[in-house]
Design a binder for these strands. Sequence first.
DNA 1: GATGAATGAGCGTTCATTCAT
DNA 2: CATGAATGAACGCTCATTCAT
Lengths: 183, 183, 183, 183
Amino acid sequence: MAKEGYEAASIREIAQAAGLAPGLVHHYVPDKESLLVALTEDLGARWLTRLDEAEGLAPEARLRRLIELHLSLDEARPEELGCWLQIIAEAARRPSVGAVWAEVVVGLRAKLVGALTALAESRGRRLDVEAGAAALLALIYGGLTLGPSAGGPPGYAAAAAWALTEGLLAAAPAADGPSQAAG
Amino acid sequence: MAKEGYEAASIREIAQAAGLAPGLVHHYVPDKESLLVALTEDLGARWLTRLDEAEGLAPEARLRRLIELHLSLDEARPEELGCWLQIIAEAARRPSVGAVWAEVVVGLRAKLVGALTALAESRGRRLDVEAGAAALLALIYGGLTLGPSAGGPPGYAAAAAWALTEGLLAAAPAADGPSQAAG
Amino acid sequence: MAKEGYEAASIREIAQAAGLAPGLVHHYVPDKESLLVALTEDLGARWLTRLDEAEGLAPEARLRRLIELHLSLDEARPEELGCWLQIIAEAARRPSVGAVWAEVVVGLRAKLVGALTALAESRGRRLDVEAGAAALLALIYGGLTLGPSAGGPPGYAAAAAWALTEGLLAAAPAADGPSQAAG
Amino acid sequence: MAKEGYEAASIREIAQAAGLAPGLVHHYVPDKESLLVALTEDLGARWLTRLDEAEGLAPEARLRRLIELHLSLDEARPEELGCWLQIIAEAARRPSVGAVWAEVVVGLRAKLVGALTALAESRGRRLDVEAGAAALLALIYGGLTLGPSAGGPPGYAAAAAWALTEGLLAAAPAADGPSQAAG
DNA sequence: GATGAATGAGCGTTCATTCAT
DNA sequence: CATGAATGAACGCTCATTCAT
């Protein structure tokens, strides 16, 4: 199911690609929109699960792994990436898709917030992890969407994500205590 | 014409909104796809022109202005932003749109490259400005697309763009050659 | 089963309302059309049975009761009336339904013919009871179908049925004997 | 247009029968339902106009003509009659059709009320013409709908309509004054 | 140039019917 | 007996495109 859902395709094509009769799709799903919602839920759950593999790592490696897992999508799973781009485009128009997408984003951000928090702690910095996670998300998503058309050298996005992190950490106050931070 | 092109709309609606007869659209444009191409060219040219206003500024202000001009799109020109998101989504599917979009990106990147080059020079750093411009573009585009769903505090994207720039500059080697230029 | 058969409903809904699996309907009935036929037979048999209650009455009361039983359908059994209207509409299109409906009409007419015959006898008139029964049936059916849209005062149909009967009787020759009737 | 609208037919069939492309139907009519509404309006207007031919006649002939014009529909214009039966069946389910049908009924009743009023006057009777018109309408409609299945002899419905009229007139008080009517 | 009627393929969806289990 | 997944034709409708005027 995950391979099909480009939504530019017709239900007839989706069904054909899945080897089903056109009418059968509506046995499992009331709507074409619901099909996309179901696909989003499925894909989102799998993706969040896959990100768990970064969980045990040391702070820096953990964040690097999260970034890399995302940015490798375009080479490792181009079909899945295509699904996501479709989903995000539809999320802006269809509330039902938008709601599921928002949930996925919450999950992704939580991972990033966790990794950023651990990293900031290990560096002794007081970082605005919410803003940092949002920025990393935006950079990752922009990198994936623009893809080759952004025109950077290979791996620019991962390098930039790291530069962004370091930049944010450098700008963050030390965590020794409110007073010392200011000092 | 620029306000209409959401492409979710039918040619009938586009024509009606422009005060034309539906059949007349095809006098000017062979295709619906060509309509989107024309819209993209028009919008792209205007946008690049508008970015020229940053041209005369000092290096830092110049880059800040470029970033700000982009990121303020969602408040200042939400319709235009909507057009762009549509265009980019279609660019992935339709080569003819993709080509024009790529040209626009080249233009945007050139502006960013210019500003980054000037900034790096003023700071005495040897920056990979191509990669830096691509990263800024990705961050900007991601911030605009994810919009509120990324969940950061207001203005996080502009702050992050700056942190990214500083991070890149911090990681860049000193410009020993023309170095004396800085000295 | 009698309550469902509006035929605007799908077999799935009919089956669901009856607590059956959709596929099971076709164990009992080959066709959707046969389902309507079966419903018509069932409903017709019940209705004719119910009309038997008028059988023992005096001639005038008997006819009044028959008329009233029909005309009260829209208040007493609106669902059943709805079924009948559906059936009659389908009877015009589907021969199999038409045949069963014709049988029901034969039965209804027989009741009316019986009552009219008894009434004419008691009044000493030679009435064309076949025509009379057909006319009463038409008036009753028209009254039920047009319902409120005919726009008469409440009870107009029953009153009219009686006026019709009296009109027919008044126009009928006396039954003193074939010769005298002509004279 | 009048010949097609059986509504049991698909839009494709309607269009084909009219020699049009399927999509063209929706140029003229937004909906299938609107098609039926338009047909009803058209047919209703024509029918009311046709009934005007009875307008100049003497009271009795006028009413006879109105009845006859209706009842001859099944022989003279079976297709139009078919349309009407479809319309009335749909009127019960679709408010938009019901509204137009109700208007037509108002027009028909007005004609019958006019004829009955003239007739009652010429006979010196105080008749409840609203109820009478409703009853005639019901009888006519029932006769047309049941058609041959009612089983009466040819012409029974017209004869019955007349008997009904006479029955109603006979039961109506004289118009010379309340006291005389009772006397 | 300009109009809008006309075309026809294709869409998402429904549903009577079949059939493996 | 009973189930409900599966089928596929047909539906109402949309819309990019064509073309006579």
